[in-house]
Write a protein that binds this DNA or RNA. Structure first.
Length: 866
RNA sequence: GGGUGCUUAGCUCAGCUGGAAGAGCAUCUCGUUUACACCGAGAGGGUCGGCAGUUCGAACCUGUCAGCGCCUACCA
């Protein structure tokens, strides 16, 4: 027997353990059907599940379960990411609490500490994914720094290098002065800020009374200036080209050059050129072969090339302005809205900084990655993201992959006395190679830089499947079927996977890429820890169950739009689960047990033929929508069928069968009710795996677990099966509506006479009992040659006109109540002794009843006039 | 600056190929009945942002205006 109340906490975790222990998430490699695979976007190993994951992973699980039920070989490949910067920062913060810096520990000890931290706090997110119901094959869980995946990283690195697609270069990069590492363009967050524009002037070399006027937002960078540029098309300034000016404070002579970068419309029309600290100026510097003066230390303070060595840029800025003012060169300072780049992780201002770094030739790798999207080998859903992808790919810059961090894949590069050794294996192999090359034992020094985290994530689609080793999984599941991820990660990850996979595998990493939006808070604001508006999915699951949260995510997921979290909606889906639970209890109480191999075509009763057709229709609806990745439509289809059709109508209709005497009708209806309930469990399972499995297990002894039950397909739907009951529903609805509109009490049983087509009359004849029961009637019959009298209310449904005599009914019902109130209130001792609130309430009710009566009488008067 | 999306009921949003405007929540009325009050029955509520076009027919297609958002570039 089912418990009276739906209580997801009683069974969700238990059911999950059963699946996992039984190996139900492992692909059925013996299946003769297609393979279907998804690689999970790997969360940070030390991270926690947030609502974004809940959405992303619910959608994936729906697809996985749906395809698994179709009998395919299904793999959901799980794993976690080492998240270089993020993890290193967390551990550094921990150490800082004990007053230790990573440098105190040294590289080796520090990395050891990180591994310890990972062992201690890692894996939480995988437990949380289990709680959500994610049916990943945990036996294949991978980590980006696993030995296998690390080997893949080294192999690709060396291969790219040999193909000339990785190179070392001294270039301007985004430098994070707090973390003291290069970061990629994508790890920089441009932030709108109100800053200042500083106007000052440099004297000309040969005529110190003449000046060239400069505007800048970063005056302290002047110590790195190696030219001033103006445009030859600028009539006011062109005459200065070729002259020199004097850089104040340091009194260095720099040329005034002609360059297109100097826009006459902007600033003063003359631009100070600081090639080592500005991306545009760097280009100008290259064009004119200007010296590049580095003015910063790695920690962002000014260096020995400036008069303000050791100062922060802010301090130096103040000092520079003071000094320029002193020299009478400062002109004005204006407020200036601008965009300042901040480090995504560190939150400090990012400085363009000249260093030796390693780059991947992304523009070259992009060629293939673009081609296969262009020709449809990889399809975005929704398709509009194709444009976004090309927009970026067409403007792609070389990808800086080196990081001056400790946590990550250390580059497989060893420096010998005068040679660089690349080795995809390990230290000893590199040493052996070096010794062989030099013909004697030499000291090797390994490159200290590690790789950008996204380098290893870029290999995820095949490295997790065991590449570079040949194996069955790689053969079976690569290319994977679909990647499900948020739009915020298209460039970080999707594009890199495309490039890396096309380079190494020559085939797309996934055939489709489903992109969803962000989960926002109730008011539509972005969730963030700093705003304090995050909602922990684990708390939501605790409160409403994982099924409710999952269903919310599915039902809210419409292509190309963000989702606003809504507690009332999640609660609504919990209510939906409760509703299903109770419907199952109804079936159980009425002994509706699953009949193995029940032949639905054998059903004779109209209500049964009707619900079977509707169930098949709903199944097709869900199937079609899932195939098109229309999650909300699919979820709504099963929701509407379960609640609006099965519970609201079918269960009610079965009551006149179950409470009747016809044994054959009861037998058939029990079998059909059980069949429909099973169908709901099957079709709902991808969305709400827990409650459906719990009911499946409790309602009958089964040969197959629900997780492996087969998804119905290509069913024959007979529209004629639906007609009679659809019409019956029309009649009942019309009568109910009229009753409510006229305020007729439910206790008043009515008589209805119908004038309509023979077809309708036939249906009314056949379904008489059900109509009477659901519309609270004594009788419904043909009008025949009865006279239409003035006290008859009328309502219509298509060809049918229904006449309802009202006279006695109303008087009876209304006066009964009124008499009661009158009697009570005329009782003096009641009025005197009962609490005032009770008396007032009684009076209120009396007034209400009188009002009600007036309304009905008014309605009757209207009918009389009709 | 370039790109892209949105504007539909009080709120949050669906609405696929142009064919009778929908859901959930909220509101109001009623509630006989052993599946369910986390419920049932019923109701009200919309100039589909404005304007102009195409069409037999437009929430949907075209143009235009307005408002909001996102991505991206830009530290003169």
């Amino acid at each position: 027997m089912l418990e009276k109340n739906y209580n997801p906490k009683d069974f969700e975790e238990k059911i999950y353990e059963n699946w996992e222990n039984a190996g139900d998430f492992k692909p059925d490699m013996r299946s003769d059907k297609d393979a279907f695979a998804i690689v999970i976007p790997p969360p940070n190993v030390t991270g926690y599940l947030h609502m974004g994951h809940a959405l992303d992973d619910t959608l994936q699980d729906i697809l996985i379960r749906y395809n698994r039920m179709q009998g395919k070989k299904v793999l959901w490949q799980p794993g976690t990411d080492h998240a270089g910067i993020a993890t290193q920062m967390v551990v550094e913060k921990q150490l800082a609490k004990e007053g230790i810096s990573r440098h105190d520990l040294g590289r080796e000890k520090f990395i050891e500490t990180v591994w310890k931290w990972k062992a201690h706090s890692g894996g939480t997110i995988c437990k949380q994914l289990r709680r959500l119901g994610a049916s990943c094959d945990w036996s294949r869980e991978r980590f980006t720094m696993d030995e296998g995946l690390s080997r893949a990283v080294r192999k690709i690195f060396v291969s790219l290098y040999k193909d000339g697609l990785i190179y070392k270069a001294k270039k301007l990069v985004n430098w994070d002065p707090k973390l003291e590492t290069a970061v990629s363009d994508l790890e920089v967050v441009p932030t709108e800020t109100m800053g200042k524009m500083y106007y000052y002037k440099y004297p000309l070399e040969n005529n110190p009374t003449e000046f060239i006027h400069i505007a800048t937002t970063r005056p302290e960078t002047m110590f790195g200036d190696t030219a001033v540029a103006v445009s030859k098309d600028n009539p006011k300034l062109a005459h200065l080209i070729g002259k020199n000016c004097i850089l104040p404070i340091v009194n260095r002579v720099i040329p005034i050059i002609d360059d297109e970068h100097a826009d006459p419309e902007k600033g003063t029309g003359a631009v100070k050129i600081t090639p080592a600290h500005d991306f545009n100026d760097f280009e100008v510097g290259k064009r004119h072969n200007l010296p590049m003066i580095n003015i910063l230390n790695p920690n962002g303070t000014l260096n020995e090339n400036t008069p303000y060595e050791g100062m922060t840029t802010q301090e130096a800025r103040v000092k520079t302005i003071e000094k320029l003012t002193e020299l009478g060169l400062m002109e004005k300072i204006e407020d200036h809205p601008m965009v300042i780049p901040y480090g995504e992780r560190s939150g400090v201002v990012i400085e363009p900084y000249m260093t030796d770094q390693w780059f991947v030739d992304a523009p070259k790798l992009a060629i293939e990655a673009k081609r296969v999207v262009d020709n449809g080998e990889m399809e975005f859903v929704p398709a509009s993201y194709k444009k976004t992808y090309f927009e970026w790919m067409n403007n792609i810059q070389p990808w800086c992959i080196s990081r001056q961090l400790w946590w990550g894949h250390q580059m497989p590069i060893w420096y010998g006395p005068d040679e660089t050794i690349f080795c995809e294996e390990n230290e000893e192999e590199a040493q052996a190679a070096a010794d062989k090359y030099y013909g004697k034992h030499v000291e090797l020094r390994r490159e200290t830089d590690v790789l950008d985290t996204w380098f290893s994530s870029g290999l995820w689609a095949f490295s997790t499947l065991g590449w570079p080793d040949k194996n069955e999984y790689l053969d079976t599941f690569y290319p994977t079927s679909v990647l499900v991820t948020g739009f915020d990660i298209i460039f970080f990850w999707v594009a890199r996977m495309m490039m890396m996979s096309m380079y190494m595998m020559k085939r797309v990493p996934f055939k489709k890429c489903y992109i969803h939006g962000l989960v926002r808070d109730e008011q539509g604001r972005k969730m963030s820890k700093s705003k304090g508006n995050t909602v922990d999915p684990m708390e939501t699951i605790e409160k409403y169950g994982a099924d409710a949260l999952r269903f919310f995510m599915a039902a809210s997921e419409t292509q190309g739009r963000d989702i606003n979290l809504s507690d009332s909606r999640i609660q609504g889906y919990r209510n939906f689960a409760t509703k299903l639970w109770n419907a199952a209890r109804f079936c159980e109480m009425n002994e509706c047990y699953s009949v193995t191999d029940f032949d639905v075509t054998s059903a004779k009763l109209e209500i049964n033929k009707w619900i079977i057709a509707k169930a098949k229709e709903a199944t097709k609806d869900v199937t079609d929508n899932l195939n098109d990745y229309r999650f909300s439509e699919a979820a709504n289809a099963i929701y509407q069928f379960t609640w609006g059709t099965f519970c609201d109508w079918y269960i009610e209709l079965t009551k006149s069968v179950f409470y009747g005497e016809n044994a054959e009708d009861i037998r058939e209806t029990r079998a059909v009710a059980a069949w429909v309930l099973d169908r709901i469990l099957v079709v709902l399972h991808p969305f709400m795996p827990f409650i459906t499995a719990e009911l499946w297990n409790n309602l009958a002894a089964r040969d197959t677990k629900l997780i492996k039950a087969s998804w119905p397909s290509n069913e024959n739907i007979n529209d004629a099966d639906k007609y009679e009951i659809d019409r019956t529903v029309d009649f009942i609805s019309a009568i109910r509506s009229l009753r409510a509109g006229m305020n007729l009490p439910a206790s008043a049983k009515l008589t209805v006479y119908v004038k309509s087509t023979a077809d309708d009359l036939n249906i009314i004849e056949k379904q008489n009992k059900m109509i009477c029961s659901l519309a609270r009637l004594n009788e419904i019959s043909t009008l025949g040659n009865r006279e239409i009298s003035q006290d008859m209310a009328q309502t219509a449904s298509k060809d049918a006109v229904m006449y309802i005599p009202l006279k006695g009914v109303i008087d009876f019902a209304l006066n009964k109540n009124l008499d009661g109130y009158a009697r009570k209130l005329s009782n003096e001792s009641f009025v005197a002794k009962a609490p005032a609130a009770v008396v007032a309430e009684e009076k209120r009710r009396q007034a209400e009843a009188m009002e009600n009566k007036a309304r009905v009488e008014e309605a009757l008067a209207r009918i009389a006039n009709f």
